[in-house]
């Protein structure tokens, strides 16, 4: 029995699903942002795993770019959370009374 790259990709499917559950079900903005990070990481693992399957570097290069982009998204997300926290004491996306939707 050897570890084949497919195992890694299958693991990424599990992680992606866990992250998706977090985004859809949690209402704390910080946890939702963390869950999005898990999903992006799962996608990265799939990219890297497939990169190994194909023996090409494209997947890895894309994964590194995704890291930079994910970090940018976090910066903006946390920026909004902090600005919002000045405004309201709750970070609850469910309690957004300003937008009833």
């Amino acid at each position: 029995m050897t570890v084949s790259p497919e195992w890694f990709v299958a693991l990424s499917g599990v992680l992606f699903a866990i992250g998706a559950a977090g985004v859809l079900l949690r209402r704390n903005a910080l946890v939702v942002l963390l869950s999005i990070e898990i999903m992006l990481n799962a996608a990265n693992l799939a990219l890297v795993g497939f990169s190994r399957v194909h023996g090409a570097h494209d997947g890895q290069v894309f994964a590194i770019m995704v890291m930079a982009i994910a970090a940018s998204e976090v910066v903006v997300g946390l920026g909004i959370v902090v600005a919002l926290s000045h405004l309201r004491r709750e970070l609850d996306t469910d309690d957004m009374t300003e937008l009833h939707g």
């Binding site: 996608a43 799939a46 894309f62 997300g77 600005a83 405004l87 957004m96 937008l99």
Partner: peptide, 27 residues
């Protein structure tokens, strides 16, 4: 601010889905 946060969260979700789809196609 709240609309920005909402857009970011749901946009991040959709980006992740798109990215994972891309990864599968690449695979």
């Amino acid at each position: 601010l709240e609309s920005g946060l909402k857009y970011l969260i749901l946009g991040g979700l959709s980006s992740a889905i798109l990215l994972y789809g891309t990864a599968l196609v690449y695979g």
